[in-house]
Amino acid sequence: MRTVQVSHITDAIKEMCIQVNYELSPDMRRVFEEAERTERSPLGRRILGQLSQNLEIAASDRIPICQDTGMAVVFLEIGQEVHFEGGSLEDAVNEGIRRGYGEGYLRKSVVDDPILRKNTGDNTPGVIHCRLVPGDQVKITVAPKGFGSENMSRVFMLKPADGIEGVKNAVVAAVEDAGPNACPPMVVGVGIGGTFEKCALMAKHALTRPAGEHSQIPWVKELEEELLSRINGTGIGPGGLGGTTTALAVNVETYPTHIAGLPVAVNICCHVNRHISAML
């Protein structure tokens, strides 16, 4: 048994919330540079150039990359030999978010009730997903999610007979529907299988995989490549103003499912696909 003070979780989450909102991870920068090289539309190239410049200004002048600094999504992979001390783990996570968004000059975008809609003033609560894993470490991933693209995400409960073609059509339909609203070029997270909520969670988690890295499963890797090519053939382009770069990456996760179902979730993220991980 290893003891972890929850205050360390708070500190780590605070730092990660700030870091990720000012600097994109190296994988995202790489796919950006690639897009600037390959984009065919002159206006598209100009927009990609502005987005690169935006990243530079964000880092050098300490201005968040996007004003929508997101609702904080936190994935915790907790080693089953870990014992937490010093208070509630959930409270510690939210305290990290509170401090990160306060001290980091990040926007407070969370309302306390979906209908009454009063801003909580500190961007809490976050959305926390915990998984128990073997070992004595804690892996924390912070992925603040902007809602321009979140609003365009979809779950499709397909039939087994729809097969892989049905899956492809669903993903492309979601992207076409999102179009300019989701701040393209996008990163597209896809969950296939499981149950209604499991596929949505996989789609979200898929966005935290480094852009440009493919699934280890051969048919899934092929699907990712084909979807990326089809999505870039929609013509939506950077800013939705036409071009050959509509998505920077398509990341797919899969899970066993029921004999009667083929759930597919499409979680769309804008080009500001923020994700950062740490081990404690």
């Binding site: 502005q50 939705g240 804008c270």
Partner: peptide, 29 residues
């Protein structure tokens, strides 16, 4: 940023207005 409804488009035409797009996600710039 993003598409507008047919009702907005009609009102834009009726009033001779303009809808501009700024680049989404370029908030620092």
């Amino acid at each position: 940023k993003g598409r507008r409804s047919p009702a907005v488009r009609e009102a834009v035409m009726r009033n001779r207005a303009v809808y501009f797009a700024a680049v989404g996600g370029a908030g620092a710039l």
